[in-house]
Design a protein around this nucleic acid. Structure first.
Lengths: 145, 145
DNA sequence: ATTCTTGCAAACTGTTTGCAAGCTC
DNA sequence: GAGCTTGCAAACAGTTTGCAAGAAT
């Protein structure tokens, strides 16, 4: 977990929520706090629910899902689905552009950045004659032991 | 739709199914036929169901889902999920390695191949120190009009 | 004749929604 | 005090599964 990123995002989140007229209710505050810490790479919506319920911090999963959805609409989170169709979220931060690496052995997902790969994507888009608006890359593999 | 690919896949499908002791029931045959034609790029499971039901070719969606799942287990199809978590399938053919390009305007998905991009992926995996077992790339963009 | 396949309907699971009570500003 | 938030429970949708009737070999 990257503390600088966490704080930057928290600051932005607070600003965005205030601007949108959203109040600091219990569920919302807790979800934001969890995402700032654990949402720097993909977290399952279910995991967020469980983490908050274990702590007794949030009463219902509906609230968690609702807040995650809201934060996504505000551009604070990015939503995706895992292989099984379960919702996952991660912080949406312009300066933290990254892709995902899935370990075939453990199933664990981690983030990576690679400037050359980015350039290759841009070059490919040019060859295809499209104006690129986004892209996602998932690498699957194993770490040699 | 590429007829050569269709025929190659149909032949392989027939062989694999026979080897597995699967019989040529109505539902299975129809699903295979549809996938050979329309499954060269991602098709929604639901679309397959609808297409076959409109034709009166298959009585229940359960059969379609079952067959799609079977074909995936046999390595004949590859399964994924769209943005909304709906199941999608496409032909799994070694010689037809491709990625996907999503048109931001229409939402339509099409396949593309790009050798340089493939190399960039391999190079990135090497830099990351992983043994690559697979990868997926989704490009989003729009075609300049 | 035997075994696989199909269709039906019910079950399942994660996610979403309606509503009344509670809390924030 | 007004109106946003929350929690509960019920609804939802796509997908999966159990089972009895119907085919394929």
């Amino acid at each position: 977990m990257n503390p600088a990123l966490r704080d930057r995002w928290l600051a932005r989140a607070e600003r965005s929520m205030a601007e949108a007229g959203l109040r600091a209710g219990a569920a919302r505050s807790r979800v934001v706090a969890v995402m700032a810490e654990d949402g720097q790479c993909l977290v399952g919506a279910r995991d967020v629910v469980d983490r908050l319920r274990d702590r007794g911090a949030v009463g219902s999963q509906a609230s968690v899902y609702r807040v995650l959805d809201e934060l996504t609409s505000l551009g604070l989170l990015r939503r995706s689905l895992d292989d099984q169709g379960l919702a996952q979220y991660e912080i949406d931060d312009a300066a933290h552009h990254h892709h995902h690496l899935v370990d075939e052995d453990t199933g664990r997902v981690e983030a990576f950045e690679d400037a050359d790969l980015e350039e290759a994507v841009i070059a490919a888009a040019r060859r295809l004659g499209i104006e690129l608006t986004g892209h996602e890359i998932v690498l699957r593999g194993r770490r040699p032991s």
